[in-house]
């Protein structure tokens, strides 16, 4: 296999160690994908609102990542997590733009979602508090529908991914001021849910 790819994948698979042995490219890629997959998939779920579309988007994301690595995309090396996040965000935004008419048309049933997702118990003790925490989380996820694509992207990257708005701006190729304006509008639309979340 392509030696550039091998080297890149070895670095990506083991970012901490300098003595990374050249892994087989595909297995290196698979290992790296596995380490990022849950996060990327959940990001797509937040962006797209359902697990079916998110599955397709997550797959497309990794396929694009694979192809970009094959072409020697140097950005992959400096911060692979951020790089693949950006690919995922763009993939979701493309999907939203192209499928607007059918978007949100069908939310998979709770049964379908439960096959894929399982909510971790909330950290607070007591079943009532836990149920409330789950309810607020779900309400917030649902409320993301009220946001524009850009507002949702920015909110998701900040809230679920913990990215700073500066990072978000760089990822989206926007001015930080623009990102702040979108973030402020997103917060205004999510005010009720956030008040409850942080009550």
């Amino acid at each position: 296999m392509n030696t550039v790819l091998e080297g890149m994948m070895a670095v990506m698979a083991q970012p901490q160690t300098v003595e990374a042995k050249p892994a087989l490219s595909v297995s290196g890629f698979a290992g790296w994908m596995e380490s990022e997959q849950r996060r990327v998939f959940l990001l797509c779920v937040r962006m797209l609102g359902n697990t079916e579309d998110a599955d397709i988007a997550a797959q497309d994301t990794f396929l694009k990542a694979w192809k970009a690595i094959g072409k020697g995309d140097a950005e992959a090396l400096s911060d692979p997590a951020k790089w693949v996040t950006r690919i995922a965000v763009n993939t979701c935004l493309d999907r939203l733009r192209s499928g607007r008419w059918q978007f949100w048309r069908r939310r998979p049933s709770a049964e379908d979602e439960a096959l894929v997702l399982a909510f971790a118990p909330a950290p607070e003790p007591g079943p009532e508090k836990q149920a409330l925490a789950v309810e607020i989380r779900e309400r917030l996820a649902e409320a993301l529908k009220k946001l524009s694509d850009r507002q949702r992207t920015i909110f998701v990257l900040r809230h679920y991914e913990g990215r700073s708005l500066e990072e978000v701006a760089a990822m989206l190729g926007l001015e930080e001021g623009t990102v702040k304006a979108h973030a402020a509008r997103a917060l205004a639309k999510l005010r009720t849910e956030l008040r409850d979340l942080y009550a």
């Binding site: 959940l42 909510f119 950290p123």
Partner: peptide, 12 residues
């Protein structure tokens, strides 16, 4: 906020 992030759904 960090707690909320930790409590995100797991994926099978």
């Amino acid at each position: 906020m960090t707690e909320a992030r930790m409590a995100e759904p797991d994926v099978h």
